[in-house]
Design a protein around this nucleic acid. Structure first.
Lengths: 205, 205
DNA sequence: CGCAGATTTGACCATTTGGTCAGTAGCGGG
DNA sequence: CCCGCTACTGACCAAATGGTCAAATCTGCG
C-alpha cells in the first residue's frame, strides 16, 4: 500500500508497473493481485486513502480564535502534511491534473461541501472586516496552491535554489511564505474594532 | 506537435499513446515516427518548447515602474499564459512532479539564473522597504504556485465551485487573488519614503 | 519523360505488461 | 494424520504498444 503510493506518485498511473510495486512491497506480483483485484482497483484504494488523509488530517479551521491565528494553524498543518507525505501530495496532484478521473466524484461530494462550510467562516470574517474580500473558495485555492507547491514542485525548487538538504533548507523558508499568505488574505490578528477598518495589520518586518 | 502537447498533457508521458497522438494530428503513426525518431524524442521536443514558451513569453519584470505595478503585470501575464495554454501548463507540471527527468538540466541552466537575476530586483525593493522580506526565490514559488493552480488543478476547482463556464467564471475571480498576492508580498504602490517604513499600504476593501 | 531522393503508409514484429490459473504450501480443527 | 480452506506463487497468455521496413507515392529537375 505504501509501496503502491510511492511508485504511483513517482511514475503516475500508467508509468507504474504492477511488478515494481510488488517488488517494492517485497512480494510476488501474483500475490499482490491476489489482495487487490487489479491495478486500477489498487490505484483507486490508494488515491482514496490519500484524499481521506487530506481531508481528515486537516481537520477544522478554528473559528473561536482570531483569523490570522486560525489560518496560520491551518496552513502550517497543511505544510506539515506536504512535508511529511510528499508522495501522497504528488499522487493527488497527478490525479487532479489528469482530470481527476477517479476521485472527481469524491471532490464534488466531499471537498465541495467542506469548502462551502468553511467558506461561511471566511464570509463572516469578511463581514466583520477581519479578512480581505476574496471569494472563500479562491482563498482556499491560493492556500492549497502555495502549500502543495513545496511537495509537488520539489524538483523545480531544488533546481532553482540548489538546496542540498531540501527538507531543512526549504522548509525553513516557509515561515515567511505563511506570513505572506496571511497578509495577503488580509487576516486580522485581533477582532477589528469596526467594520471595514481592516488595515492589514500584520507588520512586515 | 500541438496534438502531442495535448495528448501528453492529458495522459502523461507513459499514458500517452503514439498512435493517439498520430490520430489527433491526422496522420499515420509511421509517418509521425518518420518526423520524430521516437516517442521520447517527441516528448523532449514538446516539453522543451513549453519551457521556452514559459521563459520567453514571461519576459522581464519591469524595474522602472513601482513594485506593485510590476508584479501585477507579471502575475497577470502568467495567468494569461495559464489560461491560454492550460495543456502546456499541465504538461510542465507533470514533468516536474515526476522529478523533471527531461528538463531538470534546463531548469538549472536557464530558470535558476533567471530567478537569481530577478531576485536582485526583489532584494533592492526589500532594502528600500518596498517589498516584504521574503527570500526572492520563494516569492516566485508563491507566484507560480498560485498562477499555475488555475490551469493545473482545473478539475479540482471545477468540482469545488461547480463552475459551468470555467474560463469566464473562474478567471473573473482571479483579480482578487492577484490583489492578495501583491498584498502578501507587501508590495508598495509608490516608492516608500523611508526604509522599513513599509506599512502594507494596500487598502483591503 | 525519367530518375533520384524524399515522403508516406500498411503490414509486421519484438517486447512489455496486466492479469489468470493450476498447483503448492500453510494451518486450524477434528 | 487428514480434511478443508485460505494464502501464496511460478509459469503462462492475450493484448497492447513502440518501433521497423519494404513498398508505394510524390516532387523537383535535367
Amino acid at each position: 500500500m505504501l509501496a503502491a503510493t510511492r511508485v504511483f506518485s513517482r511514475k503516475g498511473y500508467d508509468g507504474a508497473r504492477v511488478d515494481e510495486i510488488a517488488r517494492e512491497a517485497g512480494l510476488p506480483k501474483a500475490n499482490l493481485l491476489y489482495y487487490f483485484k487489479s491495478k486500477k482497483a489498487l490505484y483507486r484504494l490508494v488515491i482514496e486513502r490519500v484524499l481521506d488523509l487530506w481531508l481528515n488530517a486537516l481537520g477544522d479551521i478554528a473559528v473561536d480564535i482570531n483569523p490570522a491565528e486560525a489560518i496560520r494553524n491551518y496552513v502550517n498543518r497543511k505544510i506539515h502534511l506536504s512535508r511529511h507525505y510528499p508522495e501522497a501530495s504528488r499522487l493527488f496532484a497527478m490525479e487532479v491534473i489528469a482530470g481527476a478521473p477517479v476521485i472527481g466524484g469524491h471532490l464534488v461530494s466531499h471537498l465541495r461541501p467542506w469548502v462551502a462550510e468553511k467558506g461561511q467562516v471566511f464570509k463572516r470574517w469578511q463581514d466583520e472586516g477581519r479578512m480581505a474580500h476574496i471569494d472563500p473558495a479562491h482563498a482556499f485555492f491560493m492556500i492549497w496552491a502555495v502549500t502543495q507547491t513545496y511537495a509537488d514542485f520539489e524538483a523545480q525548487i531544488k533546481a532553482v535554489t540548489g538546496a542540498s538538504d531540501y527538507d531543512s533548507d526549504i522548509y525553513a523558508a516557509t515561515d515567511a511564505v505563511v506570513d505572506a499568505l496571511v497578509r495577503g488574505l488580509g487576516l486580522a490578528d485581533a477582532p477589528a474594532k469596526g467594520q471595514k477598518q481592516n488595515k492589514a495589520a500584520v507588520v512586515i518586518n
